Amino acid sequence: MSEEPKPRRRQARGERRIAQLLQAAANVFCANGYTATSTNAIAREASVSPGTLYQYFPNKEAIAVELGDRLLAQMREYHGQAFTPANLALPLPPLLDAVLDPLIDFNCQNPVFLALMHGSEIPGRIAEEHDALHASLLARVGDLIGHYLPGSDAAQQSRIADMVFAIVKAGLALILAAPEGAERDAVVAETKTVLLRYLDPIIGEALTTIPSP
């Protein structure tokens, strides 16, 4: 009889244990921040011994890097859903919905993302990959501005993109701090209103006159 199912079962158990440890780490990072978190705290949150944790991760940094890699991969997928040619052909209000809703949904499902990516003393690899993703998204927003404002220069496009990101970052912090339900929905709506009122005088009219990408 084949012995192959046993390794597969062991692998599945290992994957479940890793997922358990990463979720525990996410909870503790959210509560305490990266710097103040210890491997012992993560083990307690996961209801395992420190020795069990060390079977899978040698230290806190390795846990953070694995968690960060998974979060960044998911974030790239969410942004792939947002910046599509079909979405960029929409009028400004539904365009904001199409671009922001996946981003807001991701952050609400993964509050550790902001806590980890914007915390102090996070591992360099996470910071580098996050900075690269941030720069890529800024460039995409800048390109979008340039599409609707073909006469604008790169400096103007960059300023507008920076302002959009500042508004979104501030809005996300308020959204995550709001209780789930009606209050959070209201903060989401307010964030979109701020962006609409900022962007509409800049590109609102252009959205109705320039062909989609």
Rank of each mutant, 00 (worst) to 15 (best):
V188C: 13
I210N: 06
G142D: 01
I175H: 06
V141P: 02
K192N: 07
T209E: 12
A161F: 00
S152K: 04
P91G: 03
P93V: 01
L149G: 05
I63W: 02
A135Q: 06
R140A: 08
N59V: 07
R13G: 11
K169W: 05
A43L: 07
P50C: 03
Q74N: 13
P123W: 01
L71A: 09
L72N: 09
E4G: 07
P123Y: 01
A127H: 11
L88C: 12
R44H: 13
F113T: 09
V188M: 11
D105A: 14
R44I: 07
I42N: 04
M75P: 01
L92G: 05
G181I: 03
I210V: 15
L95M: 15
I167K: 05
K6C: 07
P179R: 00
D69G: 11
Q55A: 13
N27C: 12
L196G: 04
I63C: 09
R159N: 11
V187S: 07
L116V: 05
L53P: 10
G181L: 06
A62V: 04
P123C: 05
L114D: 12
A31F: 00
A19V: 03
D143I: 00
L174W: 06
Q20A: 13
L149E: 10
A62N: 08
T52E: 11
T35E: 15
